[in-house]
Design a protein around this nucleic acid. Structure first.
Lengths: 105, 105
DNA sequence: CTTTTTGGTAAGCCATGCTTTATGTAAGCG
DNA sequence: CGCTTACATAAAGCATGGCTTACCAAAAAG
């Protein structure tokens, strides 16, 4: 049930942008920070939140820390959304059929 | 690019619960409100936010208003997550192959 | 046309949390 | 060893936003 944490964490635009910055591959914190109009500590804190939520991984290499997407939490979020979508779609189809049925009566 | 609004809106636990309350089918506002430990106006406000984000639809029937899931916004969110997931998975596989390659050298 | 039912709107309080500046830490470098 | 690089952590300010109480609106019932 960690999709809830993921949703909470991905709600902030800046943090979401930081996370999306890892979409093409791992990157060091500094490089991520330079892309956004907020201070470097701000990005650092966002990364911490993302880490605590299990959305990213860190690996120290020399003085820099390489961040990367972590699949587990992302998968839970995907599964939740997909399940929700499936239910909603099914609901929609059933509603259509009910309407057709009524029209025939 | 409405997945951003969806993510923002679904970050609040109560609001998310209200939204999930529509997962099994449409429901009137009052019935939704009774399920949660917050006041009815609070739920009303959450429903307004969900409506503004395009996540739910309203239909007036008598004095009550029937809320239901709206597919469009949900689909955008699903597509974003799925795309992100695919990219992340691809990244993971490439990383594995790189490691294997290094091991063989 | 008053009352009831079912909700939405307004105002205000208060906690959460995002941001910045300042400081701390650990690894490479000369 | 200092010094620099690269980043984290701490403290504080300030805005956002969720909750409650109080009030309003519209449809149905009688």
């Amino acid at each position: 049930m960690a999709y809830q944490k993921a949703l909470t964490v991905l709600s902030d635009p800046t943090r979401r942008a930081v996370f999306e910055g890892l979409r093409d591959g791992p990157a060091p914190a500094g490089l991520l920070a330079k892309r956004f109009p907020v201070s470097r500590p701000a990005v650092s804190q966002h990364l911490k939140v993302l880490r605590d939520a299990g959305l990213v991984d860190v690996e120290r290499r020399g003085t820099s820390r390489i961040y990367s997407i972590r699949l587990d939490a992302l998968r839970e979020l995907r599964d939740w959304i997909d399940g929700f979508w499936d239910d909603a779609l099914l609901q929609y189809k059933e509603a259509l059929e009910r309407d057709d049925g009524h029209r025939q009566n």
